Amino acid sequence: MTTWLDDIFAVEKPVIAMLHLSALPGDPGYDAEGGLDAVIARARQELHDLQAGGVDGVMFSNEFSLPYLTQTEPITAITMARIIGELRSEITVPFGVNVLWDGRASIDLAMATGARWVREIFTGVYASDFGLWNTNVGEVARHRARVGAAGVKLLFNIVPESATYLADRDLESIAKTTVFATLPDALCVSGATAGAPTDSQALAIVKKAAGAVPVFVNTGVRAENIGDQLSIADGAVVGTFFKRDGRFENAVDPDRVVTLMTAAREFRATLS
């Protein structure tokens, strides 16, 4: 059965690479001396390294805007739009965006830049490291329609990092009702933090409950486990493994990109 993943990526079980933008204006870690020129220069180099390594897609995120806001300041998405605009002619693979942790801002950024998808926390109420974390998926869905972004696919992270679902519900129930009641285009299953392994049993539970909705393994994918993870999931989102020494804070290591994508292609070859 053909899915929107086939239409966008034209490969089975795509690997989406995270492009983690440096801290942006307004963020505590922003390098005002280097300014946006330094942010753009690093993003450009990482974009080229990821694409040259063979990734199937790229997702821009403000990953170094720590600590995150659940309702971002306008300067964040505006700055991200400028960065993506400057790099737009150099992007050769499908791309998405993620304004952490703000669904509306992510949709607005996607609409402004031509991104094909967004990843966010769209459903649930959580106790998190960022305080009480509430969502309003109905409002966000209507906002997407109002701004003409109906074609932007919504990837729902239903196991958010640094947070615990407040309701006493099991993961299977959450996945089933999310699919039925909130109309996600895909579900993402994560570990505790960026780079943390995603539990294979949790991934399998969500995959079974999701029916025809694609499921992505969202954190902790490595060259040595990508075959096992993609044997369950419909695709993978990879960030930390691609970094030098596999450390979240480092820049992309081109050799690590090639290593993982080689393993991904070898696994996909077993499917045909």
Results as ranks from 00 to 15, higher is better:
R44T: 04
P74G: 04
V179D: 00
R119L: 02
L271R: 00
F180Q: 11
R247Y: 14
R222I: 03
N250K: 12
A251W: 05
D31Y: 02
G114K: 01
T259L: 12
V238S: 00
V213I: 14
Y68D: 09
F248Y: 10
G148I: 05
D108I: 06
A145Y: 13
A202R: 10
Q71R: 14
N136A: 09
F95A: 04
R144F: 08
S61M: 08
Q45R: 14
I158R: 10
A43S: 04
G227A: 02
A194D: 05
N225E: 05
G227E: 05
T259F: 15
T259H: 15
V39K: 00
D185N: 12
M18W: 00
P214H: 05
A202T: 06
A23P: 06
E90Q: 04
D253E: 14
D170T: 04
G138V: 12
L24F: 00
S89R: 14
G57K: 00
M80D: 00
G235H: 00
N218Q: 05
S106I: 04
E161L: 10
D108Q: 09
Y165D: 07
T219Y: 02
V221F: 02
V137Y: 15
R116V: 03
I40V: 11
A127R: 10
A192W: 13
R169L: 11
A141P: 14
A196Y: 00
G211S: 03
T72M: 11
E139H: 15
D255R: 12
F156C: 12
S162G: 07
L183D: 15
P197F: 07
T182F: 14
M261E: 07
F156K: 13
R146C: 15
W117H: 01
R146M: 15
E266W: 07
R169Q: 11
A212I: 11
G35P: 08
P67D: 05
A223F: 13
T2V: 11
I205R: 07
E63A: 10
I91P: 15
S65W: 04
A145G: 13
W101L: 09
S22Q: 13
R247D: 11
G103I: 13
I83P: 02
F60S: 00
Q201N: 11
E172S: 08
E266I: 14
F242W: 12
V137E: 15
W101E: 05
G239M: 01
A110F: 05
A41L: 05
I232F: 02
G195A: 13
V152S: 07
S89E: 13
L154F: 08
A192H: 09
I16W: 00
I75K: 05
K208G: 03
P28V: 12
I226M: 06
I205H: 01
A127C: 08
V179G: 03
R222C: 09
L50C: 08
T259C: 14
A127T: 06
D199L: 11
G246P: 06
S22C: 10
N218H: 07
R116E: 02
L109W: 00
V213C: 10
S162N: 13
